[in-house]
Design a protein around this nucleic acid. Structure first.
Lengths: 263, 263
DNA sequence: TATTCCGATAGTGAC
DNA sequence: GTCACTATCGGAATGAG
């Protein structure tokens, strides 16, 4: 396994504060949130559960104040992926649900941060998705917290796009995953056994816009279209805001004359 | 059909002298020889048979002194390709053989020119191939006259290389084609019916050096190897020449001492 | 489904 | 099998105690 695919695991195992500030966004006892090195949307973060190694080498107090409740952290080997976690013999169903719930909580905080930043930078707020890839390649469980635009220079390939398409089935929304725990046992057993090979073909299906379902014939075309869709969202929002302002204005003064047509 | 694929036919139909000097090399009553616009070897020419059109528009004397014996020229429609010629209802077997023989004669003259130029520029002579592509794309019968090196900037793709590989079967040597006429009738009938679809797959076979049969894993590697093979030919030839010189020297003076090792 | 680099492959448009 | 252009697809390497 190449280091790039396991690098983050080494940080999940020790003090997150050893991560450069340019990578680590924040952390808690159980999770850490990092900037995705190759953001596929205007906002893109990863939430990773912290882990203990099977050896005790990294569990000593010298590793820093960031390591808390080391004994309660799951083993790294059980956190390779969602599949590994849900099929672990060391972590029971409730334990798995706890881990995912704490990741969701961490993600919700991140989502709030993102929304504040959306408002500040762009004057409006759009959706934020949270979830997992059905067939991840990086060797440590990670939940994507990603704004719903997929407008990014780093989005270059069909598999990049399809892996985040919110209705395709490759991207597993955290809320969807959590419903598995409350479903019938057979359904739960079914979902947690899904092999990667079931998800892989989804990455090769034709490019369809997640906003309007139009089919796009290639990546450059899709990227222009996604940018346009985002501009449309932004201007729609500005229209709404203007209407609100006009409405407020009307309340103050019934005789105000509207001299412009909202475009 | 794109102009590029029929352009030369228009010249084959009228006075070759209307062709720019940078394209036309020479011509006779029955054939014209042109520079290949995208030479796949150090020397690369095309021999095209001249034709008359079905209409009389282009047969008038005003088209220039180059048009001779217009009545005896084959129809352009019978000269689309080797296959067309050999299956034509207007040209009998002997007529087809005549056309091909005259093309060969023209090619042999070209070959002599090339060999003079090889000697002049590079100090030695290597082989020149003459023949047809099993599945040509240009819409007028053309015989390639091409030096046996395949060293050229314009050789860029696998299909370029394989289409000239002298032992693959896609490149039909003129002498091979002429033997069809003297073979049994069933063999002749068999060869002239070969559809393009029989030749196409040959263009996709792995790259093997026509000198040493070594397999080359991609085009850049093959091109370096072909260049090396050509350098080897050249230096082999220089060694032979030096030996000759040494031998002549020995004849003149038995006591001459050879002070250098031929590399 | 980490990226990047290289090269092969596929589709198109060319006037 | 015309070229040139664009884009996709496919493999291999990748860092570094």
């Amino acid at each position: 396994m190449h280091p790039n695919l396991t690098l983050l695991r080494t940080y999940a195992l020790k003090d997150p504060l050893t991560l450069p500030a340019s990578i680590l966004f924040c952390h808690s006892d159980r999770n850490m949130t990092i900037y995705d090195a190759y953001p596929k949307s205007m906002f893109h973060f990863l939430v990773l559960p912290r882990a203990s190694s099977t050896s005790n080498k990294l569990a000593s107090p010298e590793t820093g104040g960031g390591v808390v409740s080391q004994k309660r952290l799951p083993l790294a080997s059980d956190l390779s992926s969602l599949r590994t976690l849900l099929n672990s013999k060391n972590v029971d169903k409730q334990g798995a649900k706890d881990i995912l719930t704490s990741m969701k909580d961490e993600g919700m905080k991140m989502k709030n941060e993102i929304e504040r930043e959306m408002e500040k930078r762009y004057g409006f707020v759009w959706d934020v998705w949270m979830g997992f890839h059905g067939a991840p390649s990086m060797e440590h469980l990670h939940m994507h917290v990603i704004s719903s635009d997929l407008v990014s220079e780093k989005l270059k390939h069909k598999k990049h796009y399809n892996s985040f398409h919110p209705k395709l089935g490759f991207f597993l929304h955290i809320d969807e995953v959590l419903t598995w725990f409350d479903a019938e046992s057979t359904y739960y057993q079914n979902m947690i056994k899904h092999p990667f090979s079931k998800y892989e073909p989804l990455l090769k299906v034709p490019l369809s816009c997640f906003h309007c379902h139009s089919e796009q014939k290639n990546i450059p075309t899709l990227k222009k279209h996604l940018q346009d869709e985002w501009f449309r969202l932004q201007s729609q929002n500005e229209r709404k805001k203007r209407k609100l302002e006009v409405h407020e204005c009307s309340l103050l003064n019934d005789k105000v004359e509207i001299k412009f047509i909202v475009p």
